[in-house]
Nucleic acid binder design. Structure first.
Lengths: 203, 203
DNA sequence: ATACATTGTTGACAGTGACTACTTAAGGGG
DNA sequence: CCCCTTAAGTAGTCACTGTCAACAATGTAT
């Protein structure tokens, strides 16, 4: 991210550089106290330069959160297996990818779900979040079409799945899934329970 | 919370007053940007007075989070029905109380799960959180003893239940459970799925 | 009563987000 | 070639925050 030695007066692509720097910072510190001035400092520009590209701090955070949701969605899509034999084979990798994304990027994941939902920008953010939800929804819809999932309204079952992986991710980030309380592989165990709940009784 | 007109120099019970005021503020604003100075202001005391009772802001927040966990545990205990006929009758009110606590006190609930887990005080905090978990654990243990819950390691199933209600609570707080995406009663639907997963196959 | 410990107050400091006025670089038309 | 417009960055200000040190008021033990 360091520029050429004689950096021109105009950065050229400061907007992207600011976002990149912010993402780096999010990746490093898990506690994400994120000062706009330090972003500017690390990007090598003055503390007011980002204001030429973002109206305020919240706008930058919202942008980053959106990028986070996009990446999460990509992770999930990439984790889809092509020819799943069982429902478990289909769901496990996606759920694993979801939780892994959260535990690998704890500060980013926290940020994604801590933006104010009242603001207008929150609408766009929610769009991205619901796009992630759509991946789950599609998966379950296919499973239901194939007969491996209960014939119940799919939205409710998807909500259960999302709630479960979201909750497990948050608990993992907070270090609350301690083995002596919750078993050695809580995610696997929780997934087993979820799978039983989703699977159609005939199976 | 207003004192007698000629308030004495020494407040008398400032520690409790500060906590009470902070809880009030948490209840009001959902965005919880929580300034120590405003707590002092609203408690009618100078801006540095709280430092005689708390080493720093984080300590106050940790204390409040612990109180939050205690109250959550009490809510769950109070929601236990005495003679549940079915597993559903046992689980539904507790899960409902859990989510209701979160949506009724969004700022407090967020705070409870956003404390740094690395600190020493985090240990005590986790203790309280795991005490909440114990309520769920006990409930499922009773269900398993009665035969209505699958004979699987109980910790994993409790993790699933906790993850699910925690996740649903967070999503609800963030306004992500929009009806057109997720159905009209996502919690009920998710609980149904969870119940199928917990229930022993014989039933 | 006098010394001490506790509790609260005042004032200061560095750091922050937000904003404004100023300066510099780059490009285009005549 | 020069001037002018405009985007990009800079410096400096303002109100506010968390924290700390010095000081004042109160209660308590000797």
């Amino acid at each position: 991210m360091q520029d050429a030695p004689n950096r021109p007066y105009h950065h050229g692509d400061l907007r992207r550089a600011v976002i990149e720097t912010a993402l780096d910072m999010l990746r490093e510190e898990k506690g994400w106290q994120f000062t706009l001035r330090e972003v500017a400092r690390r990007a090598g520009v003055s503390h007011a330069a980002p204001y030429k590209h973002f109206p305020d701090k919240a706008a930058l955070l919202a942008e980053i959160a959106m990028i986070g949701f996009d990446r999460l969605r990509e992770s999930l899509s990439a984790a889809k297996s092509e020819a799943p034999k069982t429902l478990r084979d289909e769901i496990t990798p996606i759920a694993g990818a979801y939780v892994a994304f959260g535990t690998d990027n704890p500060a980013l994941y926290r940020l994604m779900f801590s933006a104010e939902e009242g603001k207008a920008v929150g609408m766009h953010l929610n769009e991205r979040a619901l796009a992630v939800f759509d991946v789950l929804l599609d998966m379950l819809r296919r499973g239901q079409a194939a007969g491996s999932i209960r014939k119940r309204p799919i939205e409710g079952q998807a909500a259960a799945a999302w709630g479960l992986v979201h909750g497990m991710t948050m608990l993992a980030i907070d270090g609350l899934l301690v083995p002596e309380k919750v078993g050695s592989a809580p995610l696997d165990a929780a997934l087993s329970t979820l799978l039983e709940g989703l699977a159609s009784p005939a199976t």
